[in-house]
């Protein structure tokens, strides 16, 4: 009896040590976590999450200082993936931070633009081209649709244009006529 108890205690102790060791070992891998979170975030760099960009938000999530439901561009899918990565329950997007909108790009009405360069300074990814007092234009391929350039423009000549689906970006839809549920 006593030997059995001792054996059990010994085993528990041993397993505890292994677990503790593992915990310490895994702790070292915390900094890549920021990168893993950042890889899920959409990189729109819009600041709607309350942080000055995706990376700072990722850092805050990793540090446990921010919730996972603050990024509107990432939407429900982003939250889902964050919840999977972090092993927490997914939750609906926090409406305080905005709503998910269709992907868009900014367009500058080149006839109105006065070349004040304010939008250039606002753009988080340097997707706006132009020199001072010269017309400005948006590089469509690089624009993330963050809308940060809209408020600074003194003549309100920037608008958001939703991205159109074309033959090369079109996606097959989820088959809908199967019996639901299964």
């Amino acid at each position: 009896m006593l030997t059995a108890l001792l054996a059990m205690a010994g085993l528990t102790l041993f397993l505890g040590l292994v677990l503790g060791f593992a915990a310490i070992k895994f702790k070292v891998e915390e900094s890549p976590l920021v990168q893993k979170i950042d890889a899920i975030l959409p990189q729109t760099q819009c600041g709607q999450c309350g942080f000055p960009g995706c990376k700072p938000y990722a850092t805050a999530i990793a540090a446990g200082e921010a919730d996972i439901n603050q990024c509107p561009p990432g939407g429900e899918e982003g939250i889902q993936r964050l919840s999977e990565l972090l092993g927490v329950e997914p939750k609906p997007l926090n409406a305080e931070h905005g709503v998910t909108k269709p992907k868009s790009v900014a367009v500058i009405d080149e006839n109105i633009c006065i070349g004040c360069t304010l939008c250039i300074q606002a753009c988080p990814v340097d997707a706006i081209l132009g020199a001072a007092k010269h017309m400005h234009t948006v590089i469509e391929a690089e624009c993330t649709g963050c809308e940060l350039c809209i408020p600074p423009c003194p003549v309100d000549c920037i608008s958001m244009k939703p991205l159109q689906e074309d033959i090369t970006t079109w996606k097959w839809k989820y088959p809908m006529y199967a019996i639901k549920h299964f």
Binding site: Q45, C54, C123, E142
Partner: peptide, 20 residues
Amino acid sequence: WAREREKDKADVARDRHEFR
């Protein structure tokens, strides 16, 4: 494919943001 495209775009955006 769409996700791959989005990921590529996000990677470009990340790089450009970091460069900025």
